[in-house]
């Protein structure tokens, strides 16, 4: 291989790696949970939950939260944007806030405490990771169980089943 050919190939490889890296950043998915809960005793202060918060993400209303309620939305990428319609106390006029956040890359599920965030507290006060509750013990799932010949499920020639998911019968 001549030098020019090698350079072209290495450049192509670098471009592909760059595209892959870009996809990893811009395609990182997060599940975001919004809490409208009172933060008690943060450095001696209390930040009360709002009467009502309406959360809009990508022009879609994803949650209407009363006190002590939690909403959820999904987001792709790290630059998260949402619009909040906040009613602080009963009878108040709702105010609208547009919020932009940078989400941590390594968290799948992110909990944002809205009263703490809107009070301008540091990140540790309003951001935490959502850790799913451990699933109940399931029966051991072993795909290799069979007669050892791998014939099960194929004997009927059920192509729909083999294709797995494609509703061939539709």
């Amino acid at each position: 291989m001549n030098k020019k050919g090698l350079v072209i190939r290495l450049t192509a490889l670098a471009v592909v790696i760059a595209i892959a890296a870009t996809m990893m950043v811009i395609g990182r998915g997060h599940t975001i949970y919004f809490d409208n809960k009172t933060v008690e005793n943060y450095q001696g202060n209390e930040y009360k939950a709002f009467e009502r918060v309406v959360v809009t993400v990508k022009d879609e209303e994803v949650a209407k939260l009363g006190k002590r309620e939690r909403g959820m939305a999904t987001w792709i990428g790290q630059n998260f944007k949402m619009i909040l319609e906040i009613t602080e106390k009963k009878g108040d006029e709702p105010r609208i806030e547009e919020i932009e956040l940078t989400l941590p890359y390594n968290m799948d599920g992110i909990i944002i405490n809205l009263p703490a965030y809107l009070a301008g507290l540091p990140e540790e006060a309003w951001l935490s990771e959502f850790i799913p509750a451990p699933e109940p013990e399931e029966d051991e799932e072993d795909p290799t169980i069979g007669d050892g010949l791998g014939l099960e499920g194929d004997l009927t020639g059920d192509l729909g089943g083999d294709l797995g998911g494609e509703d061939l019968g539709a």
């Binding site: 592909v16 892959a20 870009t22 996809m23 990893m24 395609g27 990182r28 998915g29 792709i76």
Partner: peptide
Amino acid sequence: DWQIWGIPGVVLAMILSV
């Protein structure tokens, strides 16, 4: 597993499969 969603996920899967 890496939680890459949507079209970037498809593109990344294609690159990884090559």
